[in-house]
Design a protein around this nucleic acid. Structure first.
Lengths: 132, 132
DNA sequence: CGGAATCCGAATCGATACTG
DNA sequence: CAGTATCGATTCGGATTCCG
C-alpha cells in the first residue's frame, strides 16, 4: 500500500506501555494525513458519494481520494456501499469507529485553531532568524 | 524545508470555519509525523540531550532527529539550548506550547490504544478479502 | 558530542489516459 | 460515475563522510 507510513522500526520499551507504539503510530499517521482528516470531517453529516467528496474537498486528486478512502475502509473507519445502478453509485459512510475517532481529532483541531497564530509567529521568527 | 507536508491546496469554505484549514492541517501533519510525536513524548519528563533522544527513540536516524527537532523548534514547541562546553552539549526542552499540545495528543493516543485491536482486525479482514 | 553536507535509492503524488 | 493503470517529477529518508 502506498498511503501508510505504517511500519516503523522497533521502539525501545522503557515502560511496557511503549509496546503498543507500533500500532498506535500507524493510527496517528492516518490522522496526520490531511486528506484522511478532511474526508472524515466531510462525512460527519452522513454518507456521500465519490464525486461529491471530490468536489467538496477541492484540491484532492481522484487518485488520492481513492487511496484515502481505501485506507479508511481498510481501518474500519468508513464503509463503502455500491448501488449497481446505471450510472453506478458508491456511498461512503463513517462507521461507529470512525465517528468515535472524530472526538479526539476535533479536540486536536481545536487546539490547532486556538494556537495557530502563536505557531505561525514562531515560524516567522525562526525563519527570519535563520536565513536573510 | 524537507519535513513539512505543510502547504496544501485551497480548500472550499462551506462554513467560515474552514478558512483556517490550511494552517490547521500543517499542525495536524506535525502530529501525524511519528518522529515528532515520539520526541514530544520523550521530552515530557524534562530536557534531554541530542544523543539521549537518539538512544531512547531507537530507530531514528541522526538526520531525521535533527530534522524533526528543527521542525519542532521552528513551530515553537521545543527550545534548543547550547552549552558551549567541551564536548558541546545541547539540550532540548518542551515549551509551554509544546506541553499544551501533549494533552490532545495523549487523548488521541489513548483512543488509538483503546481501539487498536479493532483496527488491526479490520485491516486483517480487509486484506484477506482483497488479495489471497 | 552535535551536527551539516552529499549521495542515492525508495516512496509519494499529480496528471493523464483508459474502462465498465 | 467511479474507478484502475501508468508515468514522470518531486520528496523522503538512510548511510556515509566531514567538521568544530
Amino acid at each position: 500500500m502506498e498511503l501508510t507510513h505504517s511500519d516503523l522500526p522497533a521502539l525501545q520499551a522503557p515502560h511496557p506501555d511503549h509496546a503498543d507504539c507500533r500500532g498506535v503510530a500507524s493510527i496517528l499517521a492516518r490522522v496526520g494525513d490531511k486528506w484522511s482528516v478532511f474526508v472524515i470531517m466531510n462525512l460527519s453529516g452522513g454518507p456521500k458519494r465519490f464525486n461529491e467528496l471530490k468536489r467538496v474537498i477541492n484540491g484532492i486528486s481522484q487518485r488520492m481520494l481513492t487511496l484515502t478512502l481505501r485506507g479508511l475502509e481498510r481501518d474500519g473507519l468508513v464503509t463503502r456501499t455500491i448501488f449497481p445502478t446505471i450510472p453506478p453509485r458508491v456511498d461512503y459512510e463513517l462507521t461507529d469507529l470512525g465517528r468515535g475517532l472524530q472526538q479526539p481529532v476535533k479536540a486536536l483541531g481545536e487546539w490547532a485553531m486556538a494556537h495557530q497564530e502563536q505557531i505561525a509567529a514562531a515560524r516567522t521568527r525562526f525563519d527570519e532568524r535563520n536565513n536573510t
